[in-house]
Design a protein around this nucleic acid. Sequence first.
DNA 1: ACGCCTATTGGACCGGTGGACAGGGTCGGT
DNA 2: ACCGACCCTGTCCACCGGTCCAATAGGCGT
Lengths: 205, 205
Amino acid sequence: MTRHLFISSQAKLNPRWLAAFPGAELRTAVGGERPEVLWWAVVPLDAAALSAAIAAFPGVPVVVLSPEPVQEDAMHAIALGARGYCHSHATPGMLQQVAVAVTHGGLWLGPELMSRVMGAASERLLGESHSEPAQGLELLTPRERAVALEVARGATNKEAARRLDITERTVKAHLGAAFEKLGVRDRLQLVLALKYVPLDVDDAA
Amino acid sequence: MTRHLFISSQAKLNPRWLAAFPGAELRTAVGGERPEVLWWAVVPLDAAALSAAIAAFPGVPVVVLSPEPVQEDAMHAIALGARGYCHSHATPGMLQQVAVAVTHGGLWLGPELMSRVMGAASERLLGESHSEPAQGLELLTPRERAVALEVARGATNKEAARRLDITERTVKAHLGAAFEKLGVRDRLQLVLALKYVPLDVDDAA
DNA sequence: ACGCCTATTGGACCGGTGGACAGGGTCGGT
DNA sequence: ACCGACCCTGTCCACCGGTCCAATAGGCGT
């Protein structure tokens, strides 16, 4: 049971990591079974590679480990969908805590980053929340919304069920209700409706 | 030693809270010794009061507890400086995890809020440089691209086949090739991959 | 000519998906 | 006590989606 997967450019597993997660697995590239947490310790932060890693296991929280915390890197990582950014030399206890936080839907950042992230987010979300017509999320119940958001991130029903700790059947129920309320027929159109991206096509006929 | 201070409009301490933190203290107003974590469970979220509570103990993380999670409330709370927002009926284990996360500089949000926060933050902090759509399309052949774009608009395989005047089977073939080239597993993630492709990697030193 | 890529299609297989029936529970308002 | 929400679960089934096994045909560079 691979629960914690460390992706590192280093050939060996950091002893602190192993101390934190005895069953941890080390790889130089994303692969294998679906882990519980994906730890990204590739030293020069490669946005494309990180993005691909995040997409590889939808729903699996990704935490970026850096030997030398850089705010810009952290912002990039979070923007790409990472759920955490912390020092690669963090204590095992700290790593476990981060793991706990992110596996429960938490976002872990260094204290100094928090104000920046939240400031930016609140400005956007509070400032423009009333000017958005399309976001049909208000029509949904909290649970339906949660399921819809999981699906919008690319999760399958099973993955969404696992993340929300409910049965796949229940995910279907909420999803079906969301389809009904939003007037869409499938998950893909639900995603399009939530993002309301026109994406006009001018493909050569 | 008062480590966890709960501010609640209720007269009694939630048993779950006490289970999580045996030495927890309950008050109806901020006061007493400096706690490790300040839990704000005042039911109608009062921004002014919350703000004052946060200011009362500088450096002490404040977690807002709500019996009924509301995204707007959560955003307000976070904007005011709260370090977490979670369900007041959360399990003791969960509360402990939240406490651990926030005392270590972490930010805890409900799963539903995650994507919104991250999306909003990234859009603001990284600018609109990546607002140009569909970068990974160059990897695809013209036909694969056409199919991918149809699918990205929400079309089914059958619809795409009809629009492009090819067989549904051929749509599948092109789509499969597109999946392979873009490193995604299904149409939904293909759409997500086509939406925001970061690409502007200026990984700082 | 020979490979290589591209476009097209076929059949078969199986898991994911969505709808159509169900039910169970809690909670708040009437 | 009733009723209506919301939440959670179940079974059955038709369909779609994705991948496996192929095949045929044209263009392009060597």
